[in-house]
Design a protein around this nucleic acid. Structure first.
Lengths: 238, 238
DNA sequence: AGCGTGTAGTGGTCCGACCACTTTTGCATG
DNA sequence: CATGCAAAAGTGGTCGGACCACTACACGCT
């Protein structure tokens, strides 16, 4: 299967594989520095241009990090590093895909909120409460600010589950632009009050450390957003 | 008002933004062809090398696709295109992160399997059944083959929910290398028979179009894998 | 000993040439 | 006139070298 020659595969791709192998093989660990671009290109027998393309690819994947004048480093390889590219989905998605994203969140968010009810620290709960207050800050609050607080509210909850991978995926699924659009729509539809109730109910369940109540509250919340978006797409013609 | 140019941002990054803007602005739609690398570089006032790095970045993100001798094209921008990079996570993850991945799958897989029980077509069920048989193909079956069939089994189930975004995320969470490792471990632990029961139970629930049974069966399955991995990590010292 | 400054080394950018592949053109053939 | 194949034009792929911008470290000055 491994095709020793493999001359048919593009040069930068081979370089990418070699670097990946270096990391997987433990020759370079997270946070460590790689040989210089010039050394690497000579070592793998490719031009520096191709090597740079390979490095660029691994950089966009969140595996490597280039520091001008210093060198190329392996990232910490934390889930958040590798899933940063994820947000592109929520950014460019439209219509049907947006509904699919929300459907996935409906699977994740209740379970995550329930987990948070069991795992969240007191500091987490404080921060969540603070964000809740910020969302309710009078009717003159700028829409953008409300959306930001909403985003932070849910992200903090998911982060307090202690599962970094889950948090990274969830963050990718709820981009800023996505949430802003939903909030703008909700304001029109006059559902702001309902969402406020949802958030308060979620917060109460977390403070009470009641996983079941938290799961139920989160389910109600996501379902409400999903139903509105579904109706909205039907009108605007997805 | 400070720095209208923004000359401080790296050149390829600026090129990436410009191309993104071209897509977002509708100047080039999904599947359409971009100007040649030479034209683009002249048009944006950057060198062809930098333009190539920008294209390479967008290619790894799944937004663009280069065809040797033909040109550079915008992908269909489907979720599967944009989430292909996702699999890197499951590839390089180790220890703790592996458990986190499994925990996320425990949230997604039951809900997805339940959805599949309601939405799967007869053809889907046939394919799932075929893969189930392939997994049970006698004791002389190569381990790699069993792992592949297992992977296909779950992927086909998730794909039959009709939610392409969900399918793409799930695929990223269950890479081939990851599953192969788990299967190798299971063979040692002699849990193969148990897994077979799990799979059969899931299949039966799908054929019966029973969402609740499907959800329960999937939960049991993922939980079993998760428990084994947890114990294994404790031994090998994560 | 402390602190700038200079210098070597690194990634960043550009250029121009050539190679490999694909598509189109156009000529020769039936 | 239709057909098929070969030549040519166009495109991405790769290479090598040159120079710029930045960082880090060591040297020398105070």
């Amino acid at each position: 299967m491994s095709d020793p020659d493999g001359e048919r595969t593009p040069v930068p791709q081979r370089a990418v594989d070699r670097i990946k192998a270096m990391i997987a093989g433990g020759q370079v660990g997270p946070g460590e520095r790689l040989p210089t671009e010039r050394d690497l290109s000579a070592q793998l027998g490719v031009s520096r241009s191709s090597m740079r393309e390979a490095i660029r690819a691994l950089t966009t994947l969140g595996v490597l990090e280039s520091r001008h004048g210093a060198g190329v480093y392996v990232t910490a390889l934390r889930p958040a590093d590798l899933l940063e590219t994820f947000s592109v989905l929520a950014e460019v998605s439209q219509g049907r895909t947006l509904l699919e994203v929300l459907q996935v969140r409906r699977m994740l968010e209740p379970a995550a909120t329930a987990l948070a009810a069991a795992h969240a620290s007191d500091e987490d709960l404080d921060r969540i409460g603070a964000l809740l207050n910020r969302m309710e800050g009078g009717p003159d609050t700028v829409c953008t600010d409300t959306a930001t607080a909403d985003l932070g509210f849910h992200q903090t909850i998911v982060a307090s589950t202690g599962n970094a991978t889950l948090a990274a995926i969830h963050d990718g699924l709820s981009s800023h632009t996505f949430n802003a659009r939903v909030w703008a729509g909700h304001r029109e539809a006059g559902l702001t009050a309902k969402l406020r109730e949802d958030h308060q109910r979620i917060h109460e369940a977390l403070v009470a450390r009641d996983p079941d109540a938290a799961r139920a509250a989160a389910t109600v919340h996501v379902l409400r957003v999903e139903r509105w978006l579904s109706a909205d797409l039907a009108v605007t013609g997805n």
